[in-house]
């Protein structure tokens, strides 16, 4: 029973930890828009957590500047398993308009494993919600894989 309850809950209460790795703030605003009454991500149990230790899903925005790279990797290492990494916007995937800059180290896949990537500059809140929800389902799969 205990196992069933935990397995069931695994996808129902994904807590987010948001890391801005040099983003222009556009994606960050759209992420916050997801929590507003219009989209209301809380109905799926999403909640912004204050510390990476509490998080299930790490949300990355921005093209990963070289200053923020180590900090990003360190913070993601501190998140307990099972965890998911979601990138928002084109920047973490490709570098977007910042590509080729001496201080930008995108794509983020080079340093951390990414589970869901939401593309767009900036993606719509609906798209972000879709991405986050997919990540929540992946969480459940990871949990089941860990406790076979």
């Amino acid at each position: 029973m205990f196992k069933k309850l935990i397995d069931k809950s695994a996808s129902k209460s994904p807590w987010l930890y948001h890391i801005n790795s040099g983003s222009c703030n556009g994606c960050d605003i759209e992420l916050v828009a997801c929590l507003t009454p219009r989209y209301d991500a809380e109905r799926f149990g999403f909640k912004l957590a204050g510390s990476p230790r509490h998080a299930d899903i790490v949300v990355i925005s921005g093209p990963v500047t070289s200053q923020s790279r180590d900090r990003l990797v360190r913070t993601i290492a501190q998140v307990p398993e099972p965890k998911c990494v979601v990138t928002i916007g084109s920047c973490p995937q490709s570098g977007n308009v910042f590509k080729g800059s001496y201080s930008v180290e995108a794509p983020v896949e080079n340093f951390v494993h990414v589970d869901v990537a939401v593309a767009g500059c900036t993606p719509k809140p609906e798209a972000i919600m879709e991405g986050l929800y997919t990540a929540a389902l992946i969480l459940k799969k990871k949990r089941e894989a860990m406790h076979k």
């Binding site: 935990i6 510390s51 990476p52 230790r53 990797v73 290492a77």
Partner: peptide
């Protein structure tokens, strides 16, 4: 079996067990 494990740090310093200093 079902519950998550309790992990403690080993001898060698690892990022996972470091105190959180905002990265």
């Amino acid at each position: 079996n079902e519950r998550g494990k309790i992990l403690t740090a080993g001898e060698k310093p690892e990022a996972k067990y470091a105190t959180f200093f905002s990265g």
